[in-house]
Design a protein around this nucleic acid. Structure first.
Length: 479
RNA sequence: GGCGCUAUCGUCUAAGGGUUAGGACGGAGCCCUCUCAAGGCUCAAAUACGGGUUCGAAUCCCGUUAGCGCUACCA
């Protein structure tokens, strides 16, 4: 089995493209096939190097690989040769009609345009003469019309498909500048690369009839086809940069702090499922479970809003994958985000902090908001009122902190030996544990919501804790 | 306009003639609990519409509607 992903480098890597790559990749890996990356860059006008770079960056980030790589622009001779071959066999003809413009197009009514009159019938001699005279022409496929014929194929996802040649126009193979069209280049390459299975977006479903015509004319083995439902926006429109902004770009999710395996997992669930209610899946599990039969036929909505570009389910999956990661690996993934935020993150410290925050972050980037007080020397300013516990006052907060200062000065600084004395201190003061712990938590973390107190104290260390409690006491006295 | 594809909770989806139409995310509530999370439990929430076929239809057929794709010398 040989499959390919064939993006055209006209923008950054689109999440829909990434999903198409993933499905091809899963299909290949599942069946010990060969995965081919082919850059379809025949549209010189729109291709950019940045786009090419973004495709590679995106795929590298997603930790996806491939076995062979090609660039269509380096294979133009093959495409032209194959087009000539089709012309020589009589399956194509030269059309010398000047290119239509958009305005010409608007007037069309009552059925589809099929071909330009007079050109199909041009004699070979006449055609050759005008071509030799350097008159520009576009090479068109001579779609069989009399008798018309039904082209059919069995789609791996959509099932049996059929279309009459009476509904297929004489599509172009070569442009008047000699460049192959997408249809020609794609089919010539698919044939040359001996692609056995073409898995691509549903927008190509109806193009497939044209491709079958080309493959037939070329006299090559017919590949199998499988078309994927499209990814669309909540408003039903297809995802586009203009309308939907960063949600369509893979880099958005990388920057937001997604784990590649989580994002791949999310993308797989858009239009495919393993039929057994599993959702959280490893890459290996995805490969094992993948089949074209599990792919849906209706488009899938990426559920984002104007305020939040991230689909809530993607977020949940990311949190699950984060929680499932070994501490050392999570640490490694977190480090760049900690550094980018300007914290001096020494590895040992991060290794101790990570277990305390792993179920509190949904994105890797959350680490800076959740664990900042572990890394910052000085606590960000906070309202002293935060130090005051439920059903208490500043006096109580002061008593709690002064007592805590004593306890922390003496106790062994481990979670286990900190808990008992702190609890009994609460009992001695005649207050609830919550009332005891909150002022301490706010004093050392600078906020009410934080990881469990004793672990936090231990990781922070005696010196930092006492220093921060001292500062809190002064804050309260100044009030 | 022509041709094609699609239609189950808000979203992703399961069920492919017989189910109280299942799961997940998100939402609401409860439990757990030193806060926040995580976790557990519970609740609300769907077969687009109209006809057929059948003892029986989310499921098969036809139509309508809606959405999407193709209809370029874009891919």
């Amino acid at each position: 089995m040989r499959v390919r992903f064939a993006p055209s480098p006209t923008g950054y890597l689109h999440i829909g493209s990434a999903r198409t790559f993933i499905f091809n990749w899963l299909y290949a890996r599942r069946n010990q096939g060969t995965m081919i990356l082919r850059i379809d860059d025949t549209d010189v006008e729109r291709n950019t190097e940045e786009s090419l770079a973004s495709i590679f960056d995106g795929l590298r980030w997603l930790e996806l690989d491939w076995d062979e790589q090609y660039r269509q622009s380096e294979r133009l001779e093959l495409h032209r040769r194959r087009a000539e071959e089709i012309l020589a066999k009589g399956f194509a003809y030269r059309d010398f009609t000047p290119a239509r413009t958009a305005e010409d197009d608007s007037g069309r009514e009552g059925g589809a345009w099929l071909f330009n009159t007079g050109m199909r019938e041009l004699s070979r001699q006449e055609s050759d003469r005008r071509a030799a005279a350097r008159e520009p022409f576009v090479l068109r496929f001579r779609v069989p019309r009399q008798p018309e014929r039904t082209i059919s194929f069995d789609d791996g996802v959509f099932g049996p498909q059929a279309k009459s040649t009476a509904d297929i126009e004489d599509f172009a193979l070569l442009r008047s500048n000699g460049m192959p069209t997408y249809h020609m280049a794609s089919c010539a390459d698919d044939a040359d690369m001996r692609i056995t299975d073409i898995v691509r977006g549903q927008d190509h479903l109806t193009n497939t009839f044209k491709h079958i015509l080309i493959f037939e004319a070329l006299g090559v083995d017919m590949p199998r086809f499988g078309h994927l439902p499209l990814l669309i926006a909540p408003d039903g429109a297809k995802l586009s940069k203009r309308r939907h902004g960063p949600v369509v770009s893979v880099t958005t999710y990388q920057a937001a702090g997604f784990l590649p395996q989580a994002y791949v997992n999310f993308l797989c669930l858009l239009g495919w499922n393993p039929k057994d209610n599993r959702e959280l899946m490893t890459r290996h599990e995805l490969i094992e479970a993948f089949s074209l039969a599990g792919v849906n036929r209706s488009n899938a909505v990426v559920n984002f809003t104007e305020d939040d570009p991230i689909d809530p389910k993607a977020l949940w999956l990311n949190a699950q994958h984060i929680y499932g990661l070994p501490i050392e690996e999570l640490c490694r993934r977190l480090a760049p985000f900690v550094q980018a935020a300007g914290f001096a993150a020494d590895e040992q410290k991060l290794l101790r902090v990570t277990p305390l925050i792993r179920e509190r972050i949904r994105l890797l980037s959350d680490v800076t908001a959740v664990a900042d007080f572990f890394f910052a020397r000085e606590l960000a300013p906070y309202d002293p009122a935060e130090l005051i516990p439920q059903k208490g006052d500043a006096q109580l907060a002061l008593r709690v902190l002064e007592r805590a200062r004593q306890v922390l000065a003496q106790a062994d600084f481990t979670q286990a030996s900190l808990e008992a004395p702190l609890r009994s201190a609460a009992a001695e003061l005649g207050i609830k544990t919550g009332q005891m712990f909150q002022p301490i938590r706010v004093a050392v973390c600078g906020r009410k919501n934080a990881p469990p107190l004793f672990e936090t104290l231990e990781v922070l260390g005696r010196e930092t804790c006492l220093e921060r409690i001292e500062q809190a006491i002064e804050k309260l006295r100044r009030e």
